[in-house]
């Protein structure tokens, strides 16, 4: 029998302000909404990366405005620009210095595949040295494309079994 006072639904007085959820979704929720980028600004794409961070496109709407040039504080490396062979080892070192979990966005044609620079000095795609999660096309991609890549990456992170990975290791 249901009385008017029956507390079948969530009641903060009884449950002590507790929300029940899956640990995975809680961890992923935290991770997706504070994706701090490591702006690996190498060439032309870096200008669009700066444009994305500034007033009109405002990457802060997606919780990713905290551009940190210190890899230890970053979650997501945005490789923006042509990676040359001379630069390749520096990119890899910075990637190695980032704390887990970490993701990589290859922004633009050069970072994705070498793009229009098929030459002796250019690394033909940054995925030869670091694993890439999202590739963005364009030379350079528009800021909207970068925001789309960020949302794609957030979607990917949302599906990760992060809690299982955290506690099984």
């Amino acid at each position: 029998m249901v009385t008017p006072n029956a507390e079948l639904a969530y009641n903060s007085k009884i449950e002590g302000e507790v929300v029940v959820s899956r640990l995975d979704s809680v961890v992923n929720w935290v991770r997706t909404n504070s994706m701090w980028p490591m702006p690996m600004g190498l060439a032309c794409c870096a200008i669009e990366l700066m444009g994305t961070a500034s007033a009109r496109f405002d990457i802060a709407r997606f919780g990713a405005e905290v551009m940190r040039f210190s890899p230890r504080q970053s979650d997501c490396m945005i490789v923006a620009g042509t990676v040359t062979y001379k630069m390749a080892s520096a990119v890899r070192r910075i990637y190695d210095q980032m704390a887990e979990p970490k993701w990589v966005i290859a922004m633009g044609a050069c970072a994705s595949s070498g793009g229009m620079y098929r030459s002796y000095a250019t690394l033909q795609g940054v995925d030869r040295i670091i694993p890439v999660d999202v590739y963005v096309s364009g030379c350079p991609p528009r800021p909207e494309a970068l925001l789309d890549a960020l949302m794609k990456l957030q979607g990917k992170v949302r599906r990760e079994r992060s809690a299982t990975q955290l506690f099984s290791a």
Binding site: L42, A43, G81, T82, T84, K86, M87, A90, Y117, S119, Y120, A121, T122
Partner: peptide, 10 residues
């Protein structure tokens, strides 16, 4: 040279 892409050769 960290951004030397070989423009003159291209």
């Amino acid at each position: 040279g960290y951004l030397h892409r070989g423009d003159e050769k291209i």
